[in-house]
């Protein structure tokens, strides 16, 4: 069961600002989502190897070949703020 404290912690980690009303609202909602997934535990997985993936593909690699991106300007354009060729961001407290 997820409680109010955990909702607040998840909100903090996800950088979400929730009102007290939202915190109250989301607690049962998150619980019902978790309960829904809990149904999976009804399955007998005794003889099933643990996996990290749903599809059976491994060792997908590419050769180390340079293909510079042509769309630099477009990428910079997508940013909310820029200064010349730099991305511009608010200063982070306690950062570098």
């Amino acid at each position: 069961m997820i409680d109010l404290e955990q909702v607040r912690k998840v909100a903090l980690l996800a950088r979400l600002q929730l009102t007290p009303a939202e915190e109250e609202q989301f607690t049962p909602q998150l619980n019902s989502i978790l309960e829904y997934f809990e149904q999976l535990s009804e399955l007998d997985t005794e003889n099933v190897e643990p996996t990290t993936r749903a599809i059976d593909v491994s060792n997908v690699t590419r050769p180390d070949q340079l293909k510079p991106c042509e769309a630099l300007e477009e990428i910079l354009q997508e940013a909310p703020d820029r200064e010349d060729q730099y991305f511009r961001v608010p200063q982070i407290l306690g950062g570098e």
């Binding site: 703020d81 200064e83 730099y86 991305f87 511009r88 961001v89 608010p90 200063q91």
Partner: peptide, 9 residues
């Protein structure tokens, strides 16, 4: 007057 940083990726 707000502080900001520039980022090079």
């Amino acid at each position: 007057g707000s502080a900001y940083s520039l980022v090079d990726y």
